[in-house]
Computed example of a mutant assay.
Amino acid sequence: MTDEQVIRTLIENWVAAVHTGDLDAVLADHAPDLVMFDVPPPYDGVHGLDAYRDTWPGFFEWQKSGASFELESLEVTAGADVAFAFALLHCRAADGDPRQLLRLTIGLRKIDDRWTVTHEHHSFPHDNSAAPEIRAVLDRWSADTTAGNLDALMEPIAENVVSYEIDGNYSGKQAVREVCAAGLASSPDAITFTVPDPTVESADDLAVAWSVDHVTADGTETTSRATRVFRRTGAGWQLIHQHLSYPAS
């Protein structure tokens, strides 16, 4: 095999070992003095094979929940005794967003005529790209409220949602559905619900949005303060918590 093919097989075997939780196979082909920049701290990296070994048991426990660790793409470039590879991997919980990919760069050296990993860099992109998607959820809620479409209103709500409503606290999607159904039935005319200029902050699979909501029913407009927490799943962003209130008079 060419050096590129040897390295590709090495990395594919490493990915398979990570996915199955085979620690000995994960450590194979790694230099004693390797440095890894991982997703979690420390920021100056994990130094040495012993420290590298210690990072894996917790990850293996997380994988037992049904998480994935699979290659999406892999590119390898090899010189006479130095090589590097970069890859994208699916590394997510069972209900995680398949568009969220782990980025991986690997540096290798040929030591005693054997390719050996001397550096790994793992990361996820960090940005606020969730904001347009969260605002789209709020916009759909506005349209679905006006249309009186209860089923559509429920689609982005998680089964285990906890909602602190104006009139009480509710746990579970069915309880929130009953609250929304009562709200829609409270007015003979269409109800308007708008969220002007919500603020959205996100990281990884979590997003928080806060706003002042405007609701008009029976010709009367009211405003309330709202904080909402969303989690990104394979089905899209889902509401897992909301807190609504009026200021005390």
Rank of each mutant, 00 (worst) to 15 (best):
T105A: 08
P156R: 12
D139I: 01
E72S: 04
H214T: 07
V117R: 15
L10G: 05
V76Y: 02
V35G: 05
D205C: 10
N13H: 08
W115S: 02
L138G: 05
A94D: 03
A17W: 07
I191A: 05
L102S: 04
A16Y: 01
I191S: 06
A175Y: 05
G219T: 11
D167C: 00
L71F: 00
D127E: 04
A143N: 12
F59Q: 11
A87R: 03
E120Y: 03
S249R: 14
I166F: 05
P247Q: 09
D22M: 09
D81V: 00
L102R: 13
G79C: 03
L206H: 13
L34N: 06
K173Y: 03
I7W: 01
R92F: 02
Y170R: 13
S171D: 12
L102V: 04
L23T: 11
D204W: 12
P41G: 15
D54Y: 09
G172C: 10
V82I: 14
A28E: 13
V76W: 02
E201K: 14
R135P: 00
C91L: 07
R109H: 15
H243A: 10
S171T: 15
L244H: 15
W115Y: 02
L108I: 05
I106D: 02
T145G: 08
A78D: 05
G168H: 04
E70N: 03
A93H: 07
R140Y: 01
E155W: 04
P32I: 09
A181C: 01
N169D: 08
L138C: 06
H122I: 01
E61K: 12
V161C: 05
P125Y: 04
G236N: 12
F124I: 07
I11W: 02
G79K: 02
S202L: 06
L153Q: 11
G21C: 11
T199A: 13
D197N: 14
S171C: 06
D167W: 06
T118E: 11
A28V: 04
S186Y: 07
N149Y: 03
P156M: 09
A16W: 01
V82A: 10
G45F: 08
T116S: 09
G45H: 10
A93R: 08
A209E: 06
N13V: 00
A31R: 12
I111N: 08
D44G: 09
S245V: 11
V179Q: 05
G183L: 02
S129T: 13
T146I: 10
I157A: 08
F60P: 03
P98R: 10
V200Q: 10
H47I: 14
T146Y: 11
D95L: 11
T105K: 00
Q242E: 15
T105G: 02
S245R: 08
W115N: 04
S163V: 12
T105W: 01
H121F: 06
G236S: 13
L104T: 01
D213Q: 12
F230V: 08
A235G: 13
S171L: 09
L27A: 12
A67P: 00
P41H: 06
D81S: 04
